[in-house]
Design a protein around this nucleic acid. Structure first.
Length: 305
DNA sequence: AAGACGAAAGTGGTTGA
DNA sequence: TCAACAACTTTCGTCTT
């Protein structure tokens, strides 16, 4: 394949930063996001990788031995030496072995379906490979621990994906995931919390900064505005007026203010939609930002024009 | 007519006794 | 286990552009 020199359509520079974790290419000079779906290039070998993974799994040991799956990962040996055992004990032994085979093949079967589903939605969500793998790992753990029982397989897959996103600081909102799966936000959130608790996964709150680039890109805002939003956001973080608040609302409000100040005005509704929050939340955050950062005058100035 | 603003009531989750 | 609580949503009326 011929190598073509990429140039930033905004500032013309050809110095890019590839944020592998987020699957985004960002111009070093002006900060605009060039490509959000870089991952699509890797579709081919990623699938190949998954095939490999699956076949490996069928062949034997789980990839991630953890403290959680004691009972299941320790197989009762089928060809074990049973000479010293009574008939009753032998029967019992064989019965256990049989059930374990049944359970584990059931899990393998389930895993096969789940991973197909996972792969499909990861591709819809344009997730980096690392996150997809992480999600697969989480799902497998959950399945082996029997957490899928009583829940739809899809919701657990969705929960695993969401958890993987959070862990890798790859911002995807619950709304986006629920759209990709056609599931209710609440349901995904519920299973997400459930499997996190059960698997002892520690979740750090996401930073609003993680969302800025994507939201900004989706709104079609200029790099200047994006930079402005980040500037505002950082000040807000420093003043600690953001703690306890939802990160998406804060990111959205920062972008809204920034767009206002640079004359690229977006309506509250537009911003609210891409950020997956309501206008009311934006208004509240927006008000706080203006008060705490002394931006009222600047906004007034802009409005006069 | 559309957008911005804010009050009031409701939702789901966390926390602390 | 339950009640208080904070953040966010929904809904709706009013004001501004």
């Amino acid at each position: 394949m011929k190598k073509r020199k990429l140039r930033c359509p905004v500032c013309g520079a050809s110095d890019f930063f590839y944020d592998r974790a987020r699957g985004e290419v960002i111009c070093r000079k002006c900060g605009s996001v060039m490509e959000e779906r870089l991952i699509d290039f890797s579709q081919e070998w990623r699938e190949f990788d998954f095939e490999q993974k699956e076949s490996r799994r069928r062949a034997g040991s789980p990839l991630t031995p953890t403290r959680h799956d004691k009972g299941v990962s320790t197989m009762v040996g089928i060809g074990a030496d049973m000479k010293g055992l009574s008939v009753a004990d032998r029967r019992k032994y064989l019965r256990i072995a049989k059930w374990q085979t049944r359970i584990s093949t059931a899990i393998e079967r389930n895993l096969k379906f789940a991973l197909t589903d996972l792969r499909r939605s990861a591709s819809v969500l344009k997730l980096p490979e690392s996150v997809e793998k992480e999600a697969a790992r989480i799902y497998e753990q959950a399945a082996r621990k029997g957490l899928v029982r009583g829940r739809s397989m899809e919701s657990v897959v969705a929960g695993a994906i969401y958890a993987a996103c959070r862990i890798n600081n790859v911002p995807r909102t619950l709304g986006e995931i629920s759209l990709a799966f056609g599931l209710d936000k609440k349901e995904i959130g519920k299973t997400y919390r459930f499997i996190c608790r059960q698997l002892g996964i520690r979740i750090l709150p996401t930073s609003p900064l993680d969302y800025i680039y994507r939201f900004s890109n989706e709104l079609g805002l200029s790099p200047q505005t994006t930079t402005k939003a980040i500037e505002i956001l950082k000040k807000a973080l420093k003043k600690e007026i953001t703690s306890g608040k939802g990160p998406m609302g804060i990111a959205a409000a920062s972008l809204y203010v920034a767009a206002l100040l640079t004359g690229e005005k977006k309506t509250q509704r537009e911003v609210a939609d891409v950020a997956g929050v309501t206008e009311v939340t934006i208004r509240n955050r927006y008000k706080e930002l203006l008060e705490q950062l002394g931006l009222e005058d600047k906004v007034k100035e802009v409005k006069e024009k």
